[in-house]
Protein backbone atom coordinates (compact mmCIF):
# COMPACT_ATOMS: atom_id res chain seq x y z
CA UNK A 1 0.00 0.00 0.00
CA UNK A 2 1.10 3.54 -0.69
CA UNK A 3 1.73 5.62 2.43
CA UNK A 4 1.50 9.40 2.59
CA UNK A 5 5.26 10.00 2.58
CA UNK A 6 5.89 7.93 -0.54
CA UNK A 7 6.50 9.17 -4.06
CA UNK A 8 4.85 6.84 -6.57
CA UNK A 9 6.75 6.18 -9.78
CA UNK A 10 4.36 5.13 -12.57
CA UNK A 11 4.92 2.70 -15.41
CA UNK A 12 7.52 4.09 -17.84
CA UNK A 13 8.38 6.87 -15.40
CA UNK A 14 11.20 7.76 -12.98
CA UNK A 15 11.77 9.99 -9.97
CA UNK A 16 14.45 10.96 -7.44
CA UNK A 17 14.46 12.02 -3.78
CA UNK A 18 16.70 12.83 -0.82
CA UNK A 19 16.60 11.29 2.64
CA UNK A 20 14.12 10.71 4.31
CA UNK A 21 12.11 10.33 1.09
CA UNK A 22 10.72 6.99 -0.11
CA UNK A 23 10.16 6.02 -3.74
CA UNK A 24 7.80 3.22 -4.73
CA UNK A 25 6.56 1.58 -7.90
CA UNK A 26 3.55 -0.73 -7.92
CA UNK A 27 3.12 -4.09 -9.59
CA UNK A 28 6.24 -4.58 -11.67
CA UNK A 29 5.57 -7.45 -14.07
CA UNK A 30 7.85 -7.87 -17.05
CA UNK A 31 9.09 -4.34 -16.33
CA UNK A 32 12.16 -3.63 -14.22
CA UNK A 33 12.46 -1.33 -11.22
CA UNK A 34 15.96 0.17 -11.34
CA UNK A 35 16.94 1.58 -7.94
CA UNK A 36 20.05 3.75 -7.68
CA UNK A 37 21.44 5.00 -4.41
CA UNK A 38 24.24 7.33 -3.32
CA UNK A 39 24.93 6.41 0.31
CA UNK A 40 27.02 9.51 1.00
CA UNK A 41 24.61 12.19 -0.26
CA UNK A 42 21.68 9.92 0.70
CA UNK A 43 20.04 10.47 -2.66
CA UNK A 44 17.83 7.79 -4.23
CA UNK A 45 16.41 7.35 -7.73
CA UNK A 46 13.91 4.82 -9.08
CA UNK A 47 12.96 4.07 -12.71
CA UNK A 48 10.19 1.74 -13.94
CA UNK A 49 11.33 0.67 -17.40
CA UNK A 50 9.23 -1.37 -19.83
CA UNK A 51 11.50 -2.17 -22.75
CA UNK A 52 15.19 -3.00 -23.15
CA UNK A 53 16.36 -0.69 -25.90
CA UNK A 54 15.24 2.73 -27.19
CA UNK A 55 17.21 2.28 -30.40
CA UNK A 56 15.14 -0.72 -31.48
CA UNK A 57 11.96 1.34 -31.61
CA UNK A 58 10.78 4.37 -33.56
CA UNK A 59 8.40 5.84 -31.03
CA UNK A 60 10.96 6.36 -28.26
CA UNK A 61 10.34 9.89 -27.00
CA UNK A 62 9.61 8.75 -23.43
CA UNK A 63 13.11 8.27 -21.99
CA UNK A 64 11.86 6.55 -18.83
CA UNK A 65 10.39 3.68 -20.86
CA UNK A 66 13.70 2.12 -21.94
CA UNK A 67 16.57 0.71 -19.90
CA UNK A 68 19.26 2.64 -21.81
CA UNK A 69 17.71 6.11 -21.85
CA UNK A 70 16.09 5.82 -18.41
CA UNK A 71 19.43 5.17 -16.72
CA UNK A 72 21.04 8.24 -18.32
CA UNK A 73 18.18 10.48 -17.18
CA UNK A 74 18.01 8.88 -13.73
CA UNK A 75 21.73 9.56 -13.11
CA UNK A 76 21.41 13.16 -14.35
CA UNK A 77 18.35 13.84 -12.18
CA UNK A 78 20.10 12.39 -9.12
CA UNK A 79 23.20 14.49 -9.72
CA UNK A 80 20.98 17.57 -9.95
CA UNK A 81 19.92 17.04 -6.31
CA UNK A 82 23.38 16.27 -4.98
CA UNK A 83 24.34 12.70 -5.89
CA UNK A 84 27.75 11.81 -7.27
CA UNK A 85 27.71 9.14 -9.99
CA UNK A 86 30.92 7.60 -8.65
CA UNK A 87 29.14 6.58 -5.46
CA UNK A 88 26.03 5.14 -7.10
CA UNK A 89 25.02 1.55 -6.42
CA UNK A 90 22.18 -0.30 -8.10
CA UNK A 91 19.51 -2.77 -7.03
CA UNK A 92 16.97 -4.15 -9.47
CA UNK A 93 13.72 -6.16 -9.34
CA UNK A 94 11.08 -7.33 -11.82
CA UNK A 95 11.50 -8.90 -15.23
CA UNK A 96 8.95 -11.63 -14.54
CA UNK A 97 7.36 -13.80 -17.18
CA UNK A 98 3.74 -13.17 -16.25
CA UNK A 99 2.19 -15.76 -18.59
CA UNK A 100 3.30 -19.32 -19.20
CA UNK A 101 3.93 -18.83 -22.92
CA UNK A 102 6.10 -21.11 -24.86
CA UNK A 103 9.22 -19.10 -24.12
CA UNK A 104 10.87 -19.69 -27.48
CA UNK A 105 9.28 -16.58 -28.98
CA UNK A 106 11.70 -13.79 -28.25
CA UNK A 107 8.99 -11.13 -28.17
CA UNK A 108 7.27 -12.91 -25.32
CA UNK A 109 10.43 -13.06 -23.19
CA UNK A 110 10.41 -9.32 -22.60
CA UNK A 111 11.00 -9.78 -18.85
CA UNK A 112 14.27 -11.63 -19.41
CA UNK A 113 15.36 -9.20 -22.08
CA UNK A 114 14.60 -6.25 -19.79
CA UNK A 115 16.73 -7.78 -17.02
CA UNK A 116 19.63 -8.55 -19.37
CA UNK A 117 19.54 -5.06 -20.92
CA UNK A 118 19.40 -3.39 -17.50
CA UNK A 119 22.48 -5.28 -16.29
CA UNK A 120 24.32 -4.43 -19.49
CA UNK A 121 23.47 -0.73 -19.27
CA UNK A 122 24.52 -0.56 -15.61
CA UNK A 123 27.87 -2.12 -16.57
CA UNK A 124 28.32 0.42 -19.37
CA UNK A 125 27.91 3.24 -16.84
CA UNK A 126 30.16 1.48 -14.33
CA UNK A 127 27.46 1.27 -11.66
CA UNK A 128 27.83 -1.83 -9.47
CA UNK A 129 24.74 -4.04 -9.21
CA UNK A 130 24.72 -4.97 -5.51
CA UNK A 131 21.43 -6.89 -5.34
CA UNK A 132 18.74 -8.16 -7.67
CA UNK A 133 15.59 -10.24 -7.74
CA UNK A 134 14.44 -10.80 -11.31
CA UNK A 135 12.55 -13.47 -13.23
CA UNK A 136 9.94 -15.97 -11.98
CA UNK A 137 6.29 -15.44 -12.81
CA UNK A 138 4.83 -13.05 -10.25
CA UNK A 139 4.37 -9.30 -9.91
CA UNK A 140 6.38 -7.21 -7.45
CA UNK A 141 5.86 -3.89 -5.67
CA UNK A 142 9.11 -2.22 -4.60
CA UNK A 143 10.05 0.58 -2.18
CA UNK A 144 13.38 2.41 -2.09
CA UNK A 145 14.34 4.28 1.11
CA UNK A 146 16.65 7.26 0.59
CA UNK A 147 17.81 7.23 4.24
CA UNK A 148 19.70 3.94 3.90
CA UNK A 149 19.14 2.62 0.37
CA UNK A 150 17.14 -0.38 1.46
CA UNK A 151 15.03 -1.88 -1.30
CA UNK A 152 11.86 -3.66 -0.14
CA UNK A 153 10.07 -6.15 -2.40
CA UNK A 154 6.46 -7.31 -1.93
CA UNK A 155 4.56 -9.93 -3.90
CA UNK A 156 1.02 -11.33 -3.62
CA UNK A 157 0.80 -14.20 -1.14
CA UNK A 158 4.51 -14.00 -0.27
CA UNK A 159 6.63 -12.55 2.50
CA UNK A 160 8.40 -9.20 2.31
CA UNK A 161 12.06 -9.22 1.23
CA UNK A 162 14.60 -6.48 1.86
CA UNK A 163 17.59 -6.23 -0.46
Amino acid sequence: MVRANMIVVGMADLNVTKSPGILTTLGLGSCIGIALYDGIAKVAGLAHIMLPDSKAIQNNSNKAKFADTALVKLIADMERIGANRRYLKAKIAGGAQMFAFNATNDNLRVGDRNAEATKRVLAVHGIPLVASETGDSFGRTVELYAEDGRFVIKAIGQGIRTL
Binding site: L26, G27, G29, M98, V110, G139
Partner: peptide, 15 residues
Protein backbone atom coordinates in the same frame (compact mmCIF):
# COMPACT_ATOMS: atom_id res chain seq x y z
CA UNK B 1 -2.53 -15.32 -14.52
CA UNK B 2 -3.87 -13.95 -11.24
CA UNK B 3 -1.73 -11.11 -9.92
CA UNK B 4 -1.49 -7.34 -9.43
CA UNK B 5 -3.14 -5.36 -12.24
CA UNK B 6 0.03 -3.48 -13.18
CA UNK B 7 2.06 -6.67 -13.40
CA UNK B 8 -0.47 -8.28 -15.74
CA UNK B 9 -0.88 -5.12 -17.79
CA UNK B 10 2.87 -4.81 -18.26
CA UNK B 11 2.65 -7.62 -20.82
CA UNK B 12 0.33 -5.94 -23.35
CA UNK B 13 1.70 -2.51 -22.41
CA UNK B 14 5.23 -3.44 -23.38
CA UNK B 15 3.98 -5.05 -26.58
Amino acid sequence: TIDMANAILSVPASE
